[in-house]
Design a protein around this nucleic acid. Structure first.
Lengths: 122, 122
DNA sequence: CTTGACCCTGACGCCGGGGTCAACGTTTAG
DNA sequence: CTAAACGTTGACCCCGGCGTCAGGGTCAAG
């Protein structure tokens, strides 16, 4: 399978696939004319990569998932990745908490802006 | 007041102040030797800028606050900024929701990884 | 033979909020 | 006189995940 077809099958772009390879996440064979040649399993692999990226992992984080990227990642165990996941989970909780704080501050802020003014319009 | 002193008073850096000016948020006078010359009100103004940035507004968003940046922004009404604030609040809620979803997915993911494996270590 | 649709590598652009030089002018203290 | 400690502009660097050229090669169809 050539890169364009894989991109189509996996729902991404040619550029993204080359980027994943550059990050060490894909290792396609090459045809005689140096075209990248992917196997069928690459479709699942790329989907897994995109799933994990959408979950907030970085490309570097994904190295911990390398051994199991070709399998059904959601159904299968992936030794070594648990600590990475746990770390990301903690990081994520922190971000959510921080954003919630900002939201609360902003909400109070909005109340003041609205409450203290609006003699004209309201 | 020169730029270094203002940076110190407002708790930020010289570079940040020049950046704010570049973004159209500050307009210091110049002394005879082209040094930036800030008034006392600039301290509050810069603090307000930093407060708003920390609340998640971009430098561009801050243009909506220009008329009131020199006042006590938390106590004062700021006509025209309410809609910007409300928009940010909505945006923020969206981000929090998205992150919470990711967190939940990730949590399920972690459970599977732990539950399906670990015959050796645990 | 030529056109068009693929493929290749390499490299710059983007976003945000500055950090961090470089190379230079000014002012003050000793 | 000189050095330190300020100030000036300009320009590149950072992060992550690609988008988007530029300037080629390759291959099948007409």
């Amino acid at each position: 399978m050539l890169i364009g077809e894989l991109a189509h099958e996996a729902g991404t772009t040619v550029r993204a696939l080359r980027y994943y390879e550059q990050q060490g996440l894909l290792h396609p064979r090459r045809t005689a004319n140096r075209y990248r040649d992917y196997g069928e399993n690459s479709i699942l692999r790329v989907r897994n990569i995109r799933l994990l990226l959408s979950l907030g992992f970085t490309a570097e984080d994904l190295h911990a998932f390398l051994p199991c990227l070709d399998q059904d990642i959601e159904a299968n165990r992936c030794p070594g990745s648990a600590s990475v996941i746990a770390g990301k989970l903690t990081e994520l909780e922190g971000k959510i908490t921080a954003l919630a704080e900002i939201r609360d501050r902003l909400s109070v802020f909005l109340d003041r802006v609205n409450g203290g003014c609006d003699r004209d319009g309201l």
